[in-house]
């Protein structure tokens, strides 16, 4: 909303022949990457802040957090950047609102802190094959019964011999 308002007023300004700072039309904040596993680092950039007018302030708000981060470096593509380390962050989505050193708003962006890596969602299953077990049990039972019958039939024979 803020961005589109800026774009509209810039277009109107150009239409009226008014001199405007070109950067004002592109007020923007970026977070890279937009998702990070908890504990990862994201780079916050206010692309339109002029380093000459002082540090930018990034206000980071989210599930359990409301903190200000001061810019530390001039961004390669223009503007000012800060690194944000997400160790200890609650998982969820955060909003970053940037203000340039001259007090002007530099827009906002969101990023998401995610669980680490993959989901441990299996145990390898049941390592017993019940069908085979039942068949084996039946055969073994038959064998035992057979052995008993043979043993009982053989005893009188051996007694005679």
């Amino acid at each position: 909303m803020k961005v589109s308002t800026a774009l509209c007023s810039a277009a109107l300004g150009v239409g009226l022949g008014t001199l405007l700072l070109p950067g004002a039309a592109l007020a923007d904040t970026t977070v890279s990457p937009a998702t990070t596993p908890v504990g990862g680092t994201v780079v916050l950039t206010a692309t339109t802040c002029n380093p000459k007018s002082g540090d930018a302030i990034f206000r980071v708000t989210g599930p359990n957090r409301d903190q200000n981060v001061r810019s530390t470096t001039a961004a390669a593509g223009g503007g000012l950047s800060a690194e944000l380390f997400t160790a200890g962050f609650t998982l969820g989505t955060y909003t970053v609102t940037a203000t340039c050193g001259d007090g002007s708003s530099a827009g906002s962006a969101t990023f998401t802190v995610t669980p680490i890596g993959a989901a441990p969602a299996g145990s390898g299953g049941d390592s017993r094959d019940n069908g085979t077990l039942a068949a084996g049990g039946t055969l073994l039972g038959t064998a035992v019964a057979g052995a008993v019958i043979l043993f009982r039939r053989r005893r009188p024979v051996s007694a005679v011999a």
């Binding site: 390592s127 017993r128 094959d129 019940n130 085979t132 077990l133 068949a135 084996g136 049990g137």
Partner: peptide
């Protein structure tokens, strides 16, 4: 039978 039981337990 013993063989099947072994296979069944380790399948």
């Amino acid at each position: 039978g013993l063989g099947l039981i072994t296979v069944g337990l380790t399948a």
